[in-house]
């Protein structure tokens, strides 16, 4: 669906650290090796509470078939926690929303840098950008001011074109 949620650097699902939502029946935790230590620590801290959880560790690369089987087999009331680097999180997030999770049912903790994209209003190309308020389009070289608005359809922030002085 065109208006499916997209993970971007300001997504509401992104949190600083893992915190379990105690209103949910089950907690599905998908994490990679970078997050493994923190996930184990969080689970140990809640070990007295009979938390109904299911951990799933991403090894070197995501096996999409396994991930989909896992996500589609979840019942209503499951809360999804993603704790990983950006690329793993983006993949899991996209698969999870495809499988019917809403943003309210997902919590994401990113390890390492977040990726940021811009949509060039001159040539309609989406490209990755580094930090900073002003960038150049990777395709047409137009100078752009990074706007504050994000399009789920274009998967990037608006790039307002300007002519440098």
């Amino acid at each position: 669906m065109y208006n499916s949620p997209v993970l971007y650097d300001q997504s509401e699902t992104i949190k600083e650290k893992l915190s379990f939502n105690d209103k949910r029946k089950k907690h599905l935790i998908i994490y990679d090796q970078k997050a493994a230590g923190d996930v184990k620590q969080a689970l140990t801290a809640h070990s007295q509470e009979e938390l109904n959880y299911e951990p799933f560790e991403i090894e070197d690369a995501i096996k999409l078939q396994d991930l989909r089987t896992l996500l589609y087999s979840q019942k209503m009331g499951t809360h999804l926690y993603i704790a990983s680097n950006w690329d793993h999180a983006a993949t899991v997030f996209a698969e999870a929303t495809e499988a019917g999770f809403t943003e309210d049912e997902i919590q994401t903790v990113i390890y390492g840098p977040k990726r940021r994209y811009i949509y060039c209003m001159k040539c309609y190309h989406t490209s990755e950008i580094s930090d900073g308020d002003e960038v150049q389009c990777a395709r047409c070289d137009a100078y752009m001011e990074v706007g504050p608005f994000f399009s789920k359809v274009r998967k990037g922030y608006i790039g307002y074109p300007f002519i440098p002085n």
């Binding site: 065109y2 208006n3 949509y119 209003m121 309609y124 001011e145 706007g147 504050p148 608005f149 399009s151 789920k152 359809v153 274009r154 608006i158 307002y160």
Partner: peptide
């Protein structure tokens, strides 16, 4: 307003982007 940029956006999202000033 841009059909290309605003396609698929909600009413609230479309009325966010005003350049030059937040």
């Amino acid at each position: 307003f841009s059909p290309n940029w605003n396609l698929g956006m909600s009413f609230n999202e479309i009325h966010g982007p005003v350049p030059f000033v937040s």
